[in-house]
């Protein structure tokens, strides 16, 4: 290739270009039908990013786990469980309790994967089912009557100097993850463990603690997203997390993180989330029925990965 873009940055560049394509296509559509261009107004974009921040925070946590070559399927009910306990506890303790739920789930996931050596795919799936069971038993299968606390409402709906607070929270989470991945020993251990756990272990990295740390980060992010989503809808409800699992995996992978671990930059995940959020909002503007949405959604993921996500052929 003649262009001087390193392989690591290619997904990021291509995904960014695709975002521009989506914006242009969407604007062309709105100009031809209504003669306005809402997609290009800052207010509309901020509003879209506000609803996208829940996905963004989930994807940030998911990325830590995927970098290890693992996966966290317990995100949907970790999110829901955190939201439900937060609204049930209420008051000043709501937020810390939700985060504590996240830490507890993360420790459990990490223990199962790092010490019991059960494939993360199946262990986190089991944890997800147990959490769902706990929440159904707790609430009787209905949406609980508890309301979100004022702090949760503020974080999800209000604005801080003109920017929705949810985006600020997403930004803070992103900044922390970016710093952790790029500047700390923990972050580098994640890349090392994800590339080859055996080699990392022999180099003296405590790979078990690294795995537990990544799972705790993932569950903490899911819990944060749960608190925000409960604030945004003013309450917690059954299955509120279901819509976040597959898109967050897709966002991480579209951003160039390798699904088998070891490779990927956080900025890519960020762009992957924005891509998915904007794609969704353009499809809603076009009033695309659910069937068309799913087909386009799947085709975009395949198409993008065909461009830059191809593996090496195994030849030895």
């Amino acid at each position: 290739m003649r262009m001087s873009i390193s392989t690591e940055n290619r997904p990021i560049v291509i995904a960014s270009l695709f975002i521009v394509v989506i914006l242009i296509a969407g604007t062309a559509y709105t100009l031809s039908t209504t003669g306005t261009a809402p997609l290009l107004s800052a207010n509309y974009l901020l509003q879209q990013l506000q609803t996208g921040s829940f996905l963004g925070i989930c994807a940030a946590g998911m990325m830590m786990v995927i970098l290890l070559g693992h996966i966290d399927l317990s995100i949907p009910w970790t999110l829901t469980a955190a939201a439900m306990t937060a609204t049930a506890v209420g008051g000043d303790l709501a937020l810390p309790t939700a985060l504590a739920v996240g830490v507890a789930v993360g420790l459990l996931n990490g223990f199962g994967v790092a010490y019991l050596r059960i494939p993360s795919m199946i262990f986190t799936l089991g944890v997800d089912t147990v959490l769902r069971g706990l929440m159904v038993a707790q609430t009787g299968g209905f949406a609980p009557q508890d309301k979100a606390t004022p702090l949760m409402l503020f974080l999800a709906k209000d604005k801080i100097v003109g920017i929705p607070a949810a985006i600020v929270v997403w930004g803070v989470v992103s900044l922390i993850i970016m710093l952790v991945l790029a500047r700390t020993g923990f972050g580098r251990s994640i890349y090392a463990t994800g590339s080859r756990e055996r080699a990392a272990y022999l180099s003296g990295i405590r790979t078990r603690s690294v795995i537990i740390g990544a799972f705790v980060a993932s569950s903490l992010c899911a819990a944060t997203a749960g608190v925000l989503l409960a604030g945004y809808s003013a309450k917690a409800y059954q299955g509120m997390g279901n819509a976040f699992l597959l898109p967050s995996i897709a966002a991480v992978v579209l951003g160039g993180t390798h699904i088998l671990g070891g490779k990927g930059r956080y900025i890519g995940t960020l762009i992957g989330v924005i891509l998915i959020v904007l794609l969704n909002s353009v499809l809603s503007i076009m009033q695309m029925p659910e069937a068309g949405r799913q087909i386009i959604y799947g085709s975009v993921i395949i198409g993008m990965l065909l461009v830059y996500g191809r593996n090496q052929r195994v030849t030895s």
């Binding site: 996966i71 597959l246 897709a250 699904i259 085709s299 993921i301 990965l305 996500g309 191809r310």
Partner: peptide, 11 residues
């Protein structure tokens, strides 16, 4: 396409 099965089938 040489895409990982889990992602290809997700799509």
């Amino acid at each position: 396409g040489r895409i990982q099965p889990i992602i290809a089938t997700l799509a």
